[in-house]
Simulated assay, not measured.
Amino acid sequence: MNERSGAYDLMERWLTSMTALRGTAEKTIHAYRNDVSSFLGFLTNYKGAQTSQAMLADVNTRDMRAWLSFERQRDLSPRSMARALSAVKSFYGWLSETTGMNVTAVLATRAPKFKKPLPRPVERTAAKQLIDTVEIQSMDGWIGARDVAVVTLLYGCGLRISEALSLQFKDAPLPDVLKIRGKGGKERVVPVLPVARNAVQTYVNMCPHAQNPNDALFLGKRGGPLNPRLIQKVVEQARMQLGLPASATPHALRHSFATHLLEAGGDLRAIQELLGHASLSTTQAYTSVDQARLMEVYRKSHPKGA
Rank of each mutant, 00 (worst) to 15 (best):
N214S: 13
I131H: 03
V235T: 02
L107M: 14
G185E: 06
T249V: 13
S5C: 11
F218T: 00
D140A: 06
F42Y: 14
V103W: 07
A105W: 02
T16I: 05
V297K: 14
D215E: 15
M64N: 07
R120P: 01
L242G: 05
A108K: 15
D215I: 11
P225L: 11
R110Q: 11
A105T: 04
P228Q: 03
T104D: 11
E163M: 06
L268V: 10
R160K: 05
G265E: 04
Y286A: 10
T28N: 11
V106M: 08
S288V: 13
T51A: 14
P225N: 08
V234G: 03
V289L: 12
S288L: 10
T152P: 01
L165N: 02
Y32T: 01
I136Y: 02
N102G: 03
A111T: 11
Q211E: 05
W142A: 00
V36I: 13
S166T: 01
V106G: 06
K115C: 06
G41S: 07
L154Y: 00
G243V: 04
I231Y: 00
F39V: 11
L274N: 06
F169M: 07
K304N: 13
V106T: 03
E163P: 00
Y92N: 02
V234Q: 07
R181E: 07
A210D: 05
L268S: 04
S37E: 13
T282W: 12
L217E: 00
T287Q: 08
L294N: 08
L118M: 12
W67Q: 01
G266Y: 07
A49R: 13
D171E: 08
A172E: 03
L226V: 03
A292R: 15
A264D: 15
I136R: 08
G23C: 06
G23L: 08
K304Y: 11
F39D: 02
L274I: 10
N34I: 15
Q272N: 02
R83W: 04
P228F: 12
K186W: 09
Q201E: 15
Y46R: 13
G23V: 03
D140T: 03
S281I: 08
T125S: 12
P303A: 13
Q73T: 05
R239C: 13
F257C: 01
T44H: 14
L118S: 09
K27D: 14
H302P: 02
V122L: 08
R110H: 04
V122T: 10
T287W: 08
K304L: 15
K179R: 15
K113D: 14
T44M: 14
A145E: 06
V177Y: 08
H302F: 10
T28E: 13
C157E: 02
G276D: 00
R33P: 05
M240T: 05
R4I: 00
H251C: 06
G224W: 15
S38A: 06
P175C: 05
P121H: 05
A54L: 14
G243N: 04
Q284K: 04
Y298I: 09
Q73H: 12
V204R: 12
E71C: 14
R74Y: 05
R22P: 09
N212D: 08
L230I: 15
A216E: 12
K300F: 13
T16W: 07
E3F: 10
Y46Q: 15
S288H: 11
T283Y: 04
C207T: 01
L15Y: 04
V150P: 00
V235S: 04
Q284A: 12
P175T: 07
K113Q: 11
E3N: 12
P112Q: 06
P191W: 09
D147H: 00
K116N: 10
D132Q: 10
A246Y: 09
L85C: 07
W142K: 03
